[in-house]
Write a protein that binds this DNA or RNA. Structure first.
Lengths: 189, 189
DNA sequence: CGGAATCCGTTCAGTACTGTACAGAATCGG
DNA sequence: CCGATTCTGTACAGTACTGAACGGATTCCG
């Protein structure tokens, strides 16, 4: 990719994330974004049709990163190990400002739903692959876990919990083990 | 100035300063500079004829900043107040990595001399303007002070002194008062 | 209400930067 | 010594970005 394209996009995205952490999405203008990114206004339109498109691509990029952070080994399942879960929580912790803003922002509806849907698809796929936990109703279990995980993520990025990413990862991992979502560590006889 | 020009120059200068702080000037290549600045190699040549020119402009820019830091009020003399001297020392302290590198680097000969010359011209002009200290041989006094100030600056930026910028500024100011280079605070009867 | 200001989205010519290529110089390593 | 590699400085066509302008929509404020 052309160096200039990469630089412009990075600058615009960074400026946008900073802005969305500061104020409501609706009252962010293209002018502000361009100014903050130190880029001509036309350049913004060169890459994004409008601020909704920018938001959409921004969310998309973050979701790709999020999924990536869940799959450190490449082709494994959603949360293959406790270490992977910890890694994901730390990633979320680092980018908390964006995720919290997107979750909290009234102007970004359905972000929560999209996050939940991403997790749901991930869990669903993992259940199919690993074949564990065949006895339960897959749909319900997956939904239950996706909702729970979304909530935990929201707690983490909005700083609504006093627990650190590491503590949360440990506890959530234990819960996933209890729910037989992951290869059992010590089958309880 | 075109936004792109400013950005490119800033990136190149920043990369160059980081590099000169790391290794000898002679073994820095245009390739390295371009790579570090995240800029095409041709762009470097678009702004600077070669790395010597880049170094020269870099020094020039820093000298302009240095002089600026000495003249916070605009049209005043070189060090009108103790506060101005402190400001200058703090500026030097902040940009110590560049000044130290330029002073220490074997491949940047005469940097020390240029610094000294800048200070000499500054003091000389100040003597003419303020008209103080008429009794002494101006040339010798100015030279004496320029050499001394250069040395103090070198001490500061190379971290060869345990004293802070503030402590140095205070002491040097006292010395300048003693040498009647500045408006006397309390004429000692 | 009505003017001023701001923002929108688009167009456009001009410019800076891009990657690539080239020949020659310098440096490296066998 | 010689080949391989790297760096230099220059040239080029293609591209991304720039600033400026525009009519129209929206908001602000008196």
């Amino acid at each position: 990719m052309d160096r200039r394209i990469r630089k412009s996009r990075e600058a615009i995205i960074e400026a946008f994330i900073l802005l969305i952490a500061e104020k409501n999405f609706e009252q962010i203008t293209i002018n502000e974004i361009a100014e903050r990114a130190d880029v001509s206004r036309g350049t913004v339109y060169l890459h994004y049709t409008d601020k909704y498109d920018l938001l959409d691509q921004c969310i998309r990029t973050h979701f790709v990163q999020l999924i990536d952070s869940c799959l450190p080994c490449g082709e494994q399942a959603l949360f293959p190990t406790e270490a992977a879960l910890l890694y994901t929580f730390q990633y979320l912790d680092q980018h908390a400002s964006f995720y919290a803003a997107a979750l909290a922002n009234k102007g970004v509806p359905a972000f929560r739903n999209r996050l939940q849907a991403v997790l749901l698809r991930g869990f669903d796929k993992q259940m199919d692959m690993s074949g564990i936990n065949r006895k339960m109703n897959k749909g319900i279990l997956v939904q239950f876990l996706a909702v729970a995980m979304t909530g935990m993520i929201e707690q983490l990025v909005t700083r609504a919990t006093p627990y650190s990413a590491a503590e949360l990862a440990e506890q959530v991992w234990a819960l996933m083990e209890r729910n037989q979502m992951v290869p059992q560590a010590q089958p309880t006889v």
